[in-house]
Write a protein that binds this DNA or RNA. Structure first.
Lengths: 182, 182
DNA sequence: AAAAACATGTAAGCTGTTACATGATTGG
DNA sequence: CCAATCATGTAACAGCTTACATGTTTTT
């Protein structure tokens, strides 16, 4: 069980740099005003993260020659970086991912698109659907207990969670059907 | 803008201790096997957090007299702790809360139940619904752009997010109607 | 000429993660 | 008596947050 080469923020950066070569500043902007912006847009997070990625050989930076600002550097993934990204995208989903990292799973789905690998996308969606459905069974069992033991607020909060997962399950089914017609 | 007295984990502990006086171990168990367990159940997180709360006078621990284990300590919130909890529960929701801390909002909703304050619950739900609806308008505008510019995966990921928020909005409406009949 | 946006960085502090460590009590 | 559960802790490490700091280029 060797530890992953980088954090989730690192993978997010890697995935965005795979989409296009860009500066740390552009990445910050993206995090700041895109809805996928679960991640920090503060310079104290981004720049050190980029440096770590470069030190590990997952990305390489180059001084921008076309732009006027000499100081600005654009980064793009190295071969090793792309490998690390693919490994992350193809990782098995854990129960914990479903419970508390659904946003990360959606990010992985989005980045999967940049590899144009339809079979991998199908596997991902089928796996996601399977895991959500398994989890939903558990949640509904817990709901029965909670309805008796806990108060109304607790029951409602749990129902809210269940309904959110059901929405994700419906989405996964629809997405899967979109990718099965080819 | 004085900083909050504790972290989200701290508030979660405070809220659970408000429900009933219990040991750190019991809290760990709860985090480990309840679906509300977004929070760490590791001793390295819980015990230091409890100590910090005690140092700040938000909880007090007492050696359990009824149980046989002399080492075990149960904690309960102090008056200051309850105040801090209420303040947290009544905080205005930010856009950021909606974007990335929906789970925390649901936790707040659950803890609100332990104060038996129906008007506060209604205010919370109405505010939540309002914020989600505002955010949904933005997301749908972005969807239009994304559908043209980005690829299929990006569009689908965004749709997944939208559908999840719509589920939460429906839930909030239903919950609100439950609390308006009294 | 000023303001906004572009662009990058550092330092202190806090918190959580991982891993290790210890010991008591209860159930089979 | 052995395993599981109860119960609490510590220490090293890494990462993020906040705040500060600096300078350039473009827009108004």
């Amino acid at each position: 069980m060797n530890k992953p080469p980088t954090t989730t923020l690192g993978y997010a950066l890697l995935g965005l740099l795979h989409q296009r070569e860009q500066t740390g500043y552009a990445l910050r902007k993206f995090f700041a005003d895109s809805p996928m912006g679960n991640y920090s847009s503060s310079p104290g997070a981004i720049y050190p993260a980029l440096r770590r990625l470069e030190e590990q050989g997952l990305i390489i930076g180059s001084v921008r020659s076309d732009g006027p600002l000499k100081r600005s550097r654009t980064y793009r993934p190295t071969k090793a970086g792309l490998e690390a990204l693919r490994t992350w995208l193809g990782q098995d989903m854990t129960r914990r991912d479903i419970e508390v990292r659904m946003d990360e799973l959606m990010l992985r789905f989005a980045f999967l698109g940049d590899f144009g690998d339809v079979p991998a996308t199908r596997v991902f969606l089928a796996s996601l659907l399977d895991q959500i459905e398994t989890y939903l069974v558990e949640l509904k069992q817990i709901l029965v207990e909670v309805t008796q033991k806990a108060g109304r607020h607790g029951r409602l909060a749990l129902e809210g969670g269940i309904e959110s997962y059901e929405a994700h399950a419906r989405w996964a089914r629809r997405a899967l059907s979109e990718f099965e017609e080819e």
